[in-house]
Design a protein around this nucleic acid. Structure first.
Length: 295
DNA sequence: CTCCAGGGATGAT
DNA sequence: ATCATCCATGGA
């Protein structure tokens, strides 16, 4: 095949695609099949080189490099993480993991579906939504489906959405799709908002609370200070950064992480999340770091 | 079989 | 302002 070569130093494709930020890339043979926006893509990694193809045409290196955030100064970002045993281990484990620049609606809709779901099941829901309501495209002998537009989902019913395994999340996804499709919620214009304003707007949408809002900010709005706290991260924080057995309010946790992990906290969070999920089930018995206010 | 998952909305303190 | 409870579903 005629694949476009793209320089991608300090990047791990497989780890990035399997770290729970995107849920639609499928590994077949040497590479991954998926979509970047509405473009069908095949991508494989050979050392520091990505080999890419877009549908039946050559890949646009600029689009690929932007999606995978190859311009992020990963060295600097990792160097800005706090030094402690848990963060050091995560930093070492996740070398080359980057925060992808996702399309806003795709990211928002997917994370509305993510509540109380394992990563494997979110992948299944994403795939079901794409197959049922998206557009089918060919790529390198395989087929992939685009993520359905807000309009496409706004046209359906809660009953139809439930067929994708959404359960009680169907109502929220449908309601938010309608808000976005009507233009009442203008996701693109929200780029200009401050971090606080953006979080407020997102949390007004049905099915979006603090955690999902922070995920969307981090993965779709380049707000790399945003620090989503899910069950895995909460476990890591409780077991390694707070006094064990002491009750910790979500407010105290939010205050701690914004002070301790700093301007690139979202990256630190993603490294901690991926490391915890793939290694210890977050149940490491290491000593607590106790570097926070222990109120 | 049971347990639990990248939580959010709601109503009671 | 915090807290408990319920919400569907399927992988492990």
């Amino acid at each position: 095949m005629d694949l476009t070569r793209i320089e991608a130093p300090d990047f791990e494709l497989a780890m990035t695609l399997n770290s729970g930020q995107v849920f639609h890339w499928e590994k077949i043979g040497d590479g991954f099949y998926g979509m970047i926006g509405d473009r069908a893509v095949y991508v494989e990694q050979r050392g520091d080189i990505l080999k890419v193809r877009f549908g039946e045409t050559r890949a646009l290196p600029k689009v690929v490099a932007r999606y995978f955030a190859l311009d992020h100064p990963l060295e600097e970002i990792c160097a800005s993480f706090p030094r402690d045993p848990v963060m050091d281990a995560a930093r070492d484990f996740c070398r080359g993991l980057r925060i992808i620049r996702q399309p806003q609606w795709e990211c928002l809709a997917t994370f509305i579906c993510s509540s109380m779901k394992q990563v494997a099941h979110i992948r299944q829901i994403s795939q079901a939504l794409r197959q049922r309501f998206g557009q089918r495209k060919q790529i390198c002998g395989g087929e992939v489906f685009s993520f359905p537009s807000p309009e496409a989902l706004a046209r359906t019913t809660e009953k139809e959405l439930r067929k994708c395994g959404l359960g009680y999340r169907a109502k929220n996804l449908l309601a938010t799709a309608k808000h976005v499709a009507s233009g009442e919620a203008d996701l693109d214009s929200w780029r200009a908002l401050s971090e606080r304003q953006l979080r407020e707007r997102l949390c007004e949408l049905p099915g979006v609370g603090m955690k999902v809002a922070n995920c969307v900010m981090l993965f779709a709005y380049e707000r790399i200070a945003a620090f989503p706290v899910d069950v895995w991260i909460e476990r890591v924080l409780r077991e390694s950064y707070f006094v064990r057995g002491r009750k910790v309010t979500s407010k105290a946790m939010a205050e701690f992480v914004s002070n301790y992990f700093g301007a690139h906290g979202g990256y630190a969070q993603q490294y901690l999340f991926h490391h915890a999920r793939l290694t210890g089930k977050g149940k490491s018995r290491g000593r607590s770091i106790d570097c926070c206010h222990q109120t």
